[in-house]
Simulated scan of single mutants.
Amino acid sequence: MKMHLQIGEHIAFVTYETSFIKAFFERNYIVLPLNSGDSEISLNIKASYGDPFTNYNVEIKKGTNKLYYRRADYLIETTRDYKQATIHVHDEPALKHALMNFYSAFILHNNWGLLMHSSCVVEEGKAHIFTGRSGAGKSTAAQLSAPRVLLSDEATLVKITPECITVFNSPFRSELEVTGKEISTQLKSIQLLRQAVFNSRKQLKKSDAVLNLMDKVFYWVHGPEETKKIMTLLISLVDKVPVYELHFQKDDTFWELIS
């Protein structure tokens, strides 16, 4: 079986054999007609691989013409340009994380942008990212932001160009239903979350913003050139989009500081 999927601005041609893979894509991705045009990515998805999830550690090996990303529950075999890959997965969670791994590497390799560990909400036509350490409240902020359009609740697709920073609907989802499936929106701000008993917001210096965002990027480094690319993209991001430290209480009043 086969289908075309849209991820951000990219079209992926996918072949697969198992019904749970088809259901996963139809539930989470924008599925395009098979005559949608040329695809930039070709993926062959195979099931019945490995063991259940044990931890997030990913082993990376370099072959002559390929790269290999291995976790207990998935294996990615990709060409070095990330245009063609075979992905072996154990189950649906493994498929989601393998695709996050692959797509993050693809957009970084092509200097398109970054996949950031965050939620993203649209207010009056502009996108606002909520990020922070584990447990900081990314999903909580997203839930409290309803009925505003939600573009991501776990991993946000951020396109970075010299002209503009744009956020796209993300298929890499956690618990919340993402609305606005075909929306792309200009990014207006980034909030580094801190839960508190009252609301306050302070803009960070650009250098501090880059340091605080470095560990919020999904990536699996196999060489110093990737770290350099991430730093360059983050510098470009914070040059155009203000980053704030947001202390927020658990209701929607924090939007008074953002809007």
Rank of each mutant, 00 (worst) to 15 (best):
S184F: 02
R148G: 03
L192E: 14
H97M: 08
G50H: 14
R201H: 09
Y82E: 12
S184L: 01
V243W: 14
E17G: 11
Q203D: 02
G125A: 07
E123I: 07
A85C: 05
Y74P: 00
V241T: 13
V58K: 01
F102M: 13
T185E: 10
S119T: 08
I76C: 01
S42Y: 05
T64W: 14
I76T: 00
Q6M: 12
A146S: 14
F20A: 03
N101S: 09
E177A: 10
Q143D: 04
Y74L: 01
N199A: 04
G132Y: 12
A94N: 00
I30N: 10
A155W: 11
N65T: 14
A141L: 04
R80T: 05
K228R: 12
Y16I: 15
T179Y: 09
V238F: 05
G8P: 00
G8D: 00
K138I: 11
A98T: 02
I165F: 00
Q143I: 01
G137N: 01
T253V: 10
I60F: 11
L34S: 11
G37W: 08
L234D: 00
L32H: 05
M100N: 12
G125Y: 02
L108H: 13
L176R: 02
Q249F: 04
C120A: 15
L257V: 15
L151K: 09
T185K: 02
T232E: 05
M116I: 06
Y49P: 01
Y103N: 08
T86H: 02
H97N: 14
K216A: 04
S119Q: 04
I107L: 04
T253S: 05
E256I: 03
S139T: 06
S207K: 06
W255E: 13
L193K: 08
H117A: 13
E226F: 15
L176E: 08
I21K: 03
N44Y: 13
T131S: 08
F106R: 07
E40G: 07
V158Q: 03
R194G: 14
D208E: 07
K188A: 07
H128F: 03
N110E: 15
S184W: 00
Y29E: 09
I87V: 04
E182H: 05
E59K: 01
E245N: 15
E182W: 02
E154L: 11
F172L: 14
P33K: 10
L67H: 08
L67R: 06
T78L: 01
